[in-house]
Amino acid sequence: MRVEEKRVADVMSRTLFTVSERASVTEIVETMLNNRISAVIVVADNGEFLGIISKTDLLSGLKKYGKELLEKSAEDLLCPKPYTIEGSATLREAAQKMFAHKVHRLLVVSPSSIGKFMPVGIITASDLLRELAF
């Protein structure tokens, strides 16, 4: 399949690493480092999607809170409305959206029956570059 024909669902990562809204900054960083990822999904105890925290969010938190960052939880740092895309979108659309919003990842979502979206994957700038290279 040519890269022009590929969809987000063809290359996205379906493995989503999650943390609780009460997770400490240390837990968040450990999850990122242990899994070699640059963002985690934040969920409530009932499994509801709350937001996302990226390495950039952690750096912004460090700038804002200084040493007090270690006293914060995922709930304090999460981005509640990350940029999203549906799996049926083209890779070109994903690249355009990342570029327009100056982000390195998009949460891939699927509409749910209750009107909210459900995260089903994540696509990163690295995923897009990998597809161009191979």
Rank of each mutant, 00 (worst) to 15 (best):
F99P: 01
E21Y: 12
F49C: 13
A39F: 05
S38Y: 02
M98Y: 15
A89G: 08
L58E: 05
S54T: 15
I41W: 10
V108M: 08
K102G: 04
L91P: 13
L77W: 05
L107A: 07
L77G: 09
K55P: 04
I37Q: 05
G66T: 09
V42P: 01
S88N: 15
K81F: 14
L62R: 14
H104C: 00
D57G: 02
V40W: 00
K55Q: 14
R92G: 03
F99T: 14
Y83D: 12
Y65K: 05
D45E: 15
K64N: 09
N34P: 07
L106K: 01
P82M: 02
I28S: 06
K63F: 10
L70N: 04
T84W: 00
F99A: 12
I53C: 07
I53H: 07
L33F: 03
F49K: 11
F99L: 12
E30F: 07
S54M: 01
A44S: 15
V29E: 06
A39I: 00
N46G: 00
K67Y: 05
H104A: 00
G47H: 05
A23R: 06
T84Y: 06
I41A: 06
V108E: 03
V29M: 07
K55F: 04
V25Q: 04
A89V: 12
L107E: 01
S38W: 05
D57N: 06
L69R: 12
E86M: 09
A39E: 13
I53Y: 06
K55Y: 08
L107M: 08
